[in-house]
Simulated assay, not measured.
Amino acid sequence: MTVKVYIVYYSMLGHVERLAQEIKTGADSVPGVESQLWQVPETLSTEELEALRAPPKSDVPIITRNELRDADGFVFGFPTRFGMMAAQFQAFLDSIGLLWDEEDQFLEGKPAGMFFSTGCQGGGQETTALTAIPQLVNHGLLFVPILYTLGAGISGMFEIEEVRGGSPFGSGTYAGTDGKRNPTEIELRQAFHQGKCIAAISKKLKRDPQNYLHNIARRW
């Protein structure tokens, strides 16, 4: 039995994509789990992206709503815009709203985590998570935070000696106001840990599909 975890993200300057790569590595480290990277469609024009000094997109494939059917778990990533998810990712979630009308409602009960990139410490990493959770709720997904499971001390979630993105809501990084800061070792370690967490939970749920929220609700 193979468990599929999809890491679906929008990245403009590359910071979210770097975290996505590390989350994939973490997910793939769990036996029986295969993960895949997906990007959501861009909504800005080439001219607008050039004006924002965004690098060319990578060759990671663009996801459509039909591909979501195949996943057993998700991790969604996006930069913040004024304390909320970037409009590009919001537009993608808006576009799959028709899945509510489908009889099987295949997103129900599947686990989903989130990760983020902000320009600075006051950029809204936690408010972005809080305002994104309703998106998961309305699609029937189960929000899976990483809590404080990475551990305490200088190597974990209680690190205060250096600037560190992320929180119990999900892994994260700071891009810097000029976009030139790269994810640090501790931020990448947090992303790897998140990948392992979501993979393990997805595997546990698929092992006993009767425990999927969708199936439980049908028995009420």
Rank of each mutant, 00 (worst) to 15 (best):
L19H: 05
Q194P: 04
N66Y: 14
A129R: 01
V16N: 07
R219S: 15
Q210H: 08
R65G: 07
P31K: 12
P145S: 09
K203Q: 13
Y9T: 09
G179A: 13
I96Q: 11
P61E: 00
T177K: 15
P61L: 02
E47N: 10
Y174W: 12
M157N: 14
S45I: 10
T184R: 06
F106N: 03
I133H: 03
P61Y: 03
P31W: 04
V16G: 02
S95W: 03
R207Q: 13
N215F: 10
A217I: 14
K24S: 09
F89N: 00
Q121G: 13
I7F: 02
E42C: 01
L52R: 15
L205C: 10
A87P: 00
L130P: 01
I201A: 05
L49T: 02
A152Q: 13
E108P: 00
P168H: 15
N211S: 14
K203A: 14
Y174I: 13
T149W: 03
R189Q: 11
C120P: 00
D208P: 00
V33Q: 05
A54W: 00
V3D: 01
E126I: 04
L147R: 11
F89Q: 02
T131F: 08
G113K: 02
I23T: 05
I62D: 01
S167A: 15
I96C: 06
F82A: 09
T131A: 12
E108N: 10
L141H: 05
I133L: 12
V16A: 07
G119E: 07
E67Q: 15
A51K: 15
T64L: 03
I7G: 03
G32H: 11
H214G: 09
L68Y: 07
M84A: 13
T2W: 08
R219H: 14
F158K: 14
I216D: 01
D70Q: 12
R53L: 06
D70K: 12
P134L: 03
V144T: 10
Q90R: 14
A191V: 03
E67A: 10
G172E: 08
W38M: 08
L205G: 05
K206A: 08
K57F: 03
D178T: 14
G124P: 03
I133E: 01
Q21M: 02
